Computed example of a mutant assay.
Amino acid sequence: MEQLQFAKDQGTNRRSAFGQRFFFLVEADDVDTSGPDFDTVDGTLALHSVRAGVGLLVGLKRQRQCYCEYCYGQCTRAEPDCEGCHYKSHVDNWVPFTLKAKAKAEARETRLSAAEAAHNTGVLVARGNIFARPSGGDELHSYYLVKALSGVQEVREERGWIDDYDMHATIGEHVIQGRYLEWLNENTCTEYYIDSKKKCLTYSHHVVCVDVKVTTRTVRGNLIVSISDEEHERILGALF
């Protein structure tokens, strides 16, 4: 993660699977969800760049993102262009689109379907799996890794359940019991150990990757876990 500010072919980042990129954190509380839902943008899965345009509900999209000096400078402009792009032969121009609001009934059905699909992903978690879940805006972590101590369980007690991190699940909610994986060294952020002293609860609909592929080694009887760059990218792709 520390090397993401550098280009892939620069210095110590030459052997990394990552290229240079920029992250913009949007806190959950900063998103206004009171308005209407909108239809998805055509070709969303193939797009690498989407941004706001000029005018109500107008956006701009293109299939390739570029961080050359010229394109980076366009980030502050309301109406960007690609004329001075250093890689114009490989980067397409911005194309405007207009968001279309869904009907209320359709929007409600979409939200319910999304929640059900997320829950069904969590149901696939089995005891012993290592899964990924959102970090909830933690500045140091894009996601958390958790070792499952159970599959999905429904809270049936009237008083609910509370974990060692003061997370409270109420009656009727579906959760997974587990233990967080913590960084072995916060300076390198490449390996984890399983925190065996505390238990955590994760809502079933917060699971983004069911069975994270890891490699392990044992040091003085302690299990050390690491994930590959490719697996890290897969988790980020599921999150964003």
Rank of each mutant, 00 (worst) to 15 (best):
L181A: 01
K198L: 12
K104T: 11
G178T: 00
Q5H: 10
S49F: 13
E79S: 12
A238S: 13
S204E: 05
A169W: 06
G151E: 10
E116C: 07
V214K: 02
A148W: 09
A169N: 06
R111T: 09
T188R: 13
R127L: 02
V146Q: 02
G43Y: 03
Y144D: 10
H205M: 04
C209A: 10
R234Q: 11
Q65D: 14
G53I: 11
Q65T: 12
A114T: 08
V155D: 06
V125R: 00
R156L: 15
G55N: 12
A103K: 15
D30P: 00
F6G: 00
E186W: 08
S204M: 02
V225H: 02
C85G: 04
R62C: 03
F24I: 11
Q63I: 04
L25I: 00
Y165W: 09
G221C: 06
C71Q: 02
D138K: 00
K100L: 04
D138H: 04
T216I: 05
E27M: 00
K213R: 07
H48S: 13
W94D: 05
T188A: 09
D166H: 14
L201R: 06
G172A: 06
R156S: 15
C82W: 01
H90M: 07
T40F: 08
C189H: 08
L99W: 12
L47M: 04
F23S: 09
Q153M: 14
C209K: 12
F240V: 12
Y203I: 00
P134E: 01
L145N: 03
D166S: 15
H119D: 07
Y192T: 03
D32Y: 05
F6R: 07
V210F: 10
L184T: 09
T190H: 09
A107Y: 10
S113H: 12
G172P: 08
I162E: 15
T33K: 11
Y143C: 12
E106V: 15
V225P: 02
L140F: 07
Q65G: 15
I227L: 03
